[in-house]
Design a protein around this nucleic acid. Structure first.
Length: 111
DNA sequence: CCTGTGACATAAG
DNA sequence: CCTTATGCCACAG
């Protein structure tokens, strides 16, 4: 594994850590910020490895429509939803309500 | 080196 | 609105 490859993961983790409390973002947004707009899937893959990263709020990362597609990767079936709701984010049917309102775009906020 | 896979995104039917 | 198909790219085996 080349260091650059690791850097990709580190970037993903770094951006995820920057997500403010009560905010959420999308895989695509992070991918875009990393300069790999079409590698949104890799962000998800990186999130898979983020389980060892307690400081990485993977639950704040959802797909572009605010759907909790990755909830199955958490312990319980609704843990991800509970975490989001605990941050003041309403989730209905695995989907974040007022997603745009809570959306946090790293490209916009950091770039 | 090649194949399979993935927590996505977009387009088409 | 639904399902399929394709692109994308890095990682794991």
């Amino acid at each position: 594994m080349r260091e650059e490859n690791k850097n990709f993961f580190q970037k993903v983790y770094a951006v995820a850590k920057l997500i403010p409390y009560g905010r959420v973002t999308s895989y695509g947004a992070i991918a875009k910020y990393l300069g790999a707009t079409r590698s949104a899937r890799m962000v998800g893959w990186a999130m898979n490895g983020a389980h060892n990263m307690p400081e990485v709020p993977a639950h704040r990362v959802v797909n572009k429509i605010g759907l909790l597609t990755g909830k199955h990767h958490f312990d319980g079936t609704n843990l991800m939803q509970q975490l989001l709701e605990s941050e003041g984010i309403n989730v209905v049917d695995n989907q974040i309500t007022d997603f745009e309102k809570h959306f946090w775009d790293p490209w916009k906020e950091l770039g």
